[in-house]
Design a protein around this nucleic acid. Structure first.
Lengths: 140, 140
DNA sequence: GTAACTGCAAAATATTTGCATCCTT
DNA sequence: AAGGATGCAAATATTTTGCAGTTAC
């Protein structure tokens, strides 16, 4: 598990109100080391929380920089915890995400840096997002 | 414009039946040099073609290797023409896609090769998909 | 002629919005 | 107390499926 904080600490750190739903959503992210979809979260947390509330909280987490979107080859959106350095106004994401074609999990590989890439003239890059598909270490 | 073929040639090359809807969809791809969403296509081709037919033809094009999915930071799916070498059974996509945050267009940068990346032990890469976000040459 | 393609209707799924109520601070 | 969070209902958007009729080859 890469994340050492607990839900309460995360909510405090980002100045967000502490609610049951938010804690449970964060627990899912902390517990799992792969990216989660809204659908996955909905079916894994206490069902007393409304689907709409989950949507709104995911959006709030995105806004605050607590989580980030993870692209998927299927077009579905998944989410994962940001590293500690992300804030509402300072996202610096050079993500490498790996999607295993066997188990279907998408994980963040923080240790990998994306190499420098020289774009054509007059193109300016601000954010990089590399999705690698293949077979993960647990499935080889 | 990077693609020199016309709809008729493409359909023939991939062994697909020639229909009005397919030709019009392909015309959109040939005419534009950025990735198109289902929604964009639907609102830009002759309205006599049903939304469902467009879905089915996009799927058929995907299956045959005529087009490929383009990841979007918003999670929406877009599509773009494959290069000539793609077929139904042999996709070799090391895509670099650039999404301009100003004009919103996503273009394929075929000229860029993604550098070799060494994955952690026991990870096997089969496909790479790099999405770069920033400002394109027309918007700088 | 026949398999493939299309249109229409409808179902299934996904996401957003409005509003009244409740909870955190 | 006040603004934010929640639940519910409903609107909107997206994608899929079934089936009957039409078309490409």
């Amino acid at each position: 598990m890469r994340h050492t904080k607990n839900p309460t600490q995360i909510l405090s750190a980002y100045g967000m109100r502490h609610t049951g739903c938010r804690s449970q959503i964060l627990e899912q992210f902390i517990y799992h080391d792969f990216a989660l979809s809204h659908n996955y979260i909905e079916s894994h947390i206490d069902s007393k929380y409304d689907r709409v509330t989950i949507y709104r909280n995911l959006k709030a987490f995105l806004d605050k920089g607590v989580i980030h979107k993870v692209l998927d080859d299927e077009g579905g959106i998944k989410y994962a915890l940001c590293n500690d350095a992300c804030t509402e106004h300072d996202h610096h994401h050079n993500h490498v995400h790996f999607k295993c074609e066997k188990c279907g999990k998408t994980i963040c590989i923080d240790s990998l840096k994306i190499p420098e890439i020289s774009l054509p003239a007059n193109f300016e890059a601000k954010e990089l997002n590399l999705l690698i598909q293949g077979t993960c270490d647990e499935c080889t």
